[in-house]
Amino acid sequence: MAKFKINVVAERCKSCGYCIKYCPKNVLEIGTEVNAKGYEYIVAARQDDCIGCLTCGRICPDGAIEIYKEGE
């Protein structure tokens, strides 16, 4: 099964929580680190559960989430 990798562009995240709400696999959660604008940016806490559906990337208003597919 292909592996997927979430890359959070921390500075773009505004901690709105849309991605967490709509991720079917509960991969993401609000982090504890704060970006320059003072938002606790999200982290991919359960990276391995990601199925690469791209929902988080699409729902994110600010394009803070990049999704990669790693080799077979």
Partner: peptide
């Protein structure tokens, strides 16, 4: 790694919008 999704290049690379958290203007 193959990039499946990232923010559109039609938004300036270095910019983060001033829209509020959750604002769909950004979307």
């Amino acid at each position: 790694a193959e990039l499946l999704y990232s923010r559109t290049k039609t938004i300036q690379e270095d910019k983060v919008s001033g829209f509020c958290p959750g604002c769909m203007h950004s979307t």
